[in-house]
């Protein structure tokens, strides 16, 4: 479903991603791990062109996102993204956050969007918070709303950029549960995370990045039992 071909990205002289090529299948759950500064987040942000690749191609469902003729604004509606710091719209209530893009961008009716919003809030366990402002929510609740907001656009792919890194430890679980549930429902997902236990349990594939290179790409069982590279072995030693 997603084809990445020879992706590189430089900020000035600093080469952040070096020649990354990979394929993600429909329904596949990928956990992207690696030491900080390895380019994980940049890799993810290239997939919906929040960062413009320096070279290489990204093809999603046969559409080349790096082609200048592609209407990227429209295509982003099919790629949901969840950020480390949630980025809920603070001047809107939870429900308004959820229905803004569907009604204003997709032209969905308010009633329909509202009904769908309630459904999604129920799914993330926050139906009772629909009319609250984000400032009233805990970090975990905010992140669950942010996930619901992305899902409201009916995306084909979900990107998670360190979704639990800004959360207090006791809130990590509730968010991971939502993401796990989403994965088992067949959503195609890429998750940048430091939660090794979660990666091992929930992912179909582990990507290990270091120094801007995709060093390893294997099943969690293989990766955690026998990392192929010395760098990955050292990394696992430090985090496990």
């Amino acid at each position: 479903m997603i084809n990445v071909e020879h992706l590189t990205k430089s900020f000035g002289k600093n080469e952040v991603l070096r020649d990354i090529s990979t394929t993600v299948d429909r329904g596949e759950v990928v956990a992207v791990i690696g030491p900080s500064g390895s380019g994980k987040s940049t890799f993810l942000r290239c997939l919906n062109l929040l960062e413009t690749p320096t070279s290489g191609r990204i093809v999603v469902d046969g559409v080349d996102l790096t082609d200048r003729r592609t209407n990227i604004t429209q295509f982003r509606q099919r790629i949901g993204m969840v950020f480390q710091h949630f980025h809920l719209f603070p001047h809107m209530t939870v429900m308004e956050n959820l229905i803004f893009a569907p009604t204003r961008v997709k032209g969905m009716s308010r009633d329909e969007a509202h009904a769908k919003g309630l459904q999604l809030l129920e799914r993330v366990g926050l139906k009772h918070k629909a009319d609250d402002y984000p400032s009233k929510l805990s970090g975990g609740q905010k992140q669950r709303v942010a996930i619901a907001r992305s899902l409201a656009m009916d995306p084909d792919v979900m990107l998670f950029d360190e979704p639990t890194s800004a959360l207090d430890p006791e809130m990590v679980k509730e968010v991971l549960a939502v993401i796990r549930d989403l994965g088992s429902s067949g959503m195609t997902m890429l998750i940048v995370t430091h939660e090794m236990k979660f990666a091992r349990e929930a992912a179909d594939t582990i990507y290990f990045l270091d120094g801007g290179k995709l060093l390893e790409r294997s099943s969690p069982a293989d990766f955690f039992a026998q990392p192929q590279t010395e760098r990955a072995a050292r990394f696992l030693e430090q985090v496990l």
């Binding site: 509606q77 980025h87 992305s150």
Partner: peptide
């Protein structure tokens, strides 16, 4: 916050 802009872009908002 820069994130507001990114969140909007990611949702496909013009």
């Amino acid at each position: 916050d820069k994130g507001q802009r990114e969140a909007a872009l990611a949702l496909g908002i013009p």
